[in-house]
């Protein structure tokens, strides 16, 4: 019986698609609400009427009073309301505290739940929710296609600690300028915001250009380079999730050293040598790809040290034979 955990990757993709889909849908629903509030269906131009009709068709089975009830889900992954529960990104709290140089507790409470989850699951936001990850992973697939087509895709390795520098400098600059600058260089915040601007208000903001730059960076400098080396939110989640309780671990007795996990890991980690670290974003791609179910989520506060070659691989067998010969001698 193979482990159920290899299906988690599909579940993760469903989650990513849901979040991204919501970010696209919410501005349309907001437009629908404003059209209802205006009580002027007959005056709407054809394109707005189309939005009204389609949204009405979507929501009519579930809602009796869409103008009020659609307020239940509002906002983006940066900060939003979910059925009366206000949730925010921890980076928003950090950036805002740095910018205003004081702590506003009602806002800090909104980040309590995400921080709690991060303490338990590590960088789960990066792998399971972040709308930018959705696009970055598609971008990474594009990179694979480009490499197959013979185009040069660079995969440099930079220092993984660069992102902590970005976080630190971002906080210092936020405090110096008195504005939450981190919001301008944090892709999930940018995407939520820009989708809203484009759909509901009209016109891109400056963030779109920045996000396109990060896509080019990922293709031309390092694989998933922005998430791994530059993202300030990723840095914060990494720090919070350093001693996470749920982490992917290798079961050395089942491992056959095929190294598929190392190839599939977009963050460039080394599951084959038990090298996950605080960077792992729980994307579970390695669990899905492992042919012998050696990789699994485990309840542990620390990574296991390097456990050596897998017991199903030929390296381990050679070692065994050598030790047997030594014993016989």
């Amino acid at each position: 019986m193979r482990t159920w955990q290899r299906h988690l990757n599909k579940l993760r993709w469903i989650s990513l698609c849901l979040v991204f889909g919501m970010l696209v849908l919410l501005p349309f629903l907001h437009l629908y609400q404003t059209y209802i509030a205006a009580h002027a269906y007959d005056l709407l131009p054809a394109n707005e009427r189309q939005i009204y009709d389609s949204m009405e068709k979507l929501t009519a089975p579930f809602l009796s009073n869409p103008e009020k009830q659609l307020d239940a889900i509002k906002g983006t992954t940066w900060s939003g309301t979910l059925f009366g529960l206000k949730l925010s990104d921890p980076l928003a709290a950090v950036g805002q505290a740095a910018a205003s140089m004081k702590v506003y507790w009602p806002f800090m409470l909104t980040v309590a739940i995400p921080i709690l989850f991060t303490l338990v699951f590590g960088r789960f936001f990066c792998g399971w929710i972040c709308p930018a990850t959705f696009l970055y992973e598609l971008n990474d697939n594009l990179g694979t296609l480009m490499r197959k087509a013979g185009l040069p895709i660079t995969q440099r390795r930079l220092d993984g600690r660069l992102k902590y520098l970005v976080l630190g400098i971002g906080m210092v600059l936020s405090a110096a300028m008195g504005a939450v600058l981190l919001a301008a260089v944090y892709p999930p915040a940018i995407i939520g915001r820009e989708l809203y601007y484009v759909i509901a208000i009209g016109g891109f903001g400056g963030g779109t250009l920045f996000f396109l730059m990060t896509l080019v960076f990922d293709l031309m400098v390092a694989r998933r380079g922005f998430c791994r080396y530059l993202c300030p939110g990723g840095a914060l989640y990494s720090l919070l999730g350093r001693y996470r309780l749920v982490r992917i671990q290798r079961d050395v007795a089942n491992c056959n050293d095929c190294a598929k996990c190392n190839v599939v890991c977009q963050f460039g980690l080394d599951p084959l040598r038990d090298n996950f670290g605080q960077e792992c974003n729980n994307c579970t791609a390695c669990i899905a790809v492992c042919p012998t179910d050696a990789l699994k989520f485990e309840l542990k506060a620390k990574d296991a040290p390097n456990q050596g070659p897998g017991h199903l691989g030929h390296q381990y067998r050679k070692q065994q034979q050598k030790s047997e010969i030594a014993e016989a001698a």
């Binding site: 919410l26 404003t34 103008e67 509002k74 906002g75 900060s79 805002q96 504005a179 939450v180 915001r193």
Partner: peptide, 26 residues
């Protein structure tokens, strides 16, 4: 102080019934 406190999430715009709230973009 308003700029210090605003995190740029855009929720105010998303709930505004007459859609009167605009954002500084570029």
């Amino acid at each position: 102080k308003f700029i210090d406190a605003c995190i740029g999430c855009g929720v105010c715009g998303e709930v505004c019934p007459p859609r009167c709230i605009r954002f500084h973009t570029n």
